[in-house]
Amino acid sequence: MSSHAIDVTAIEQARFDERLRADRKIEAQDWMPPAYRRTLIRQISQHAHSEIVGMLPEGNWVTRAPSLKRKAILLAKIQDEAGHGLYLYSAAETLGSSREEMVDALHAGRARYSSIFNYPTPTWADIGAIGWLVDGAAIMNQVPLCRCSYGPYARAMIRICKEESFHQRQGFDIMLSLCRGTPEQKAMAQAALERWWWPVLMMFGPSDAESSHSAQSMQWGIKRISNDDLRQKFIDATVPQIELLGLRLPDPLLVWNADRGHYDHGPIDWDEFRRVLDGHGPCNRERLATRVAAHDNGAWVREAALAHAAKRNSTAKSA
């Protein structure tokens, strides 16, 4: 009996490995190693949580956007983030994790979300910097995920990436307006760039040598490009944009290295990264508390929707 079970697993594992080698997708119903499933649930649900929590720093500015046009754009962007969260929760649910479990893990502080959203947005320029830099870094991370070995995740990422480039452009557009404005506005843009630069570089995760999940995820086809390579790609793409805006580079060691064909940069403060990850960033508590309150305050809406559905169901049956 048990030897038979082992044989079946070995056959399934071989089939799974062969599929990965051939670069074919794994779908929800297919056999997969338990650790592959767990890794995906962790990564996709964290990704979903990040989209949802990511609405909070921006929501802060909806009522204070400087014009009706900017307000409408910001609302559309935030609505997209909610949609991205839903695509991702759905993808994670195909792996057998329920929506309730995932939301509960976030609210209880058991699940993580991207540390970047634990930083505050004190000025309007921060909204520009988030779109331009945070969404820009997210795109760098997400484009390779469109080729992820797990089908539902890859398909959700394709949809997300299509929508994400509007986010980056609207952020850059805000920065451009500020940089062409008064000296005070330009100074505001400069300060926002300096505030976000290092946390954004940390978004790509620890250096490859220290990243605990990287190697296995690469082997499974979940991750396609290393943290350091993506970070470098982002820096190389962004420096010319900083120059175009006429802003000062946020790192004195950020210089072109002709030998490497890339920009060099100064050391990243990984202690800060770990501090924020461990819950001690400027806004961790506020973000989670806001998220939990929003969910709790919406309980009556969910209850009313279910009551309405039940009532319509029973009326339809009795008719």
Partner: peptide, 8 residues
Amino acid sequence: HLPDKTPP
């Protein structure tokens, strides 16, 4: 934190 009691 208390888990959500609304049915799925």
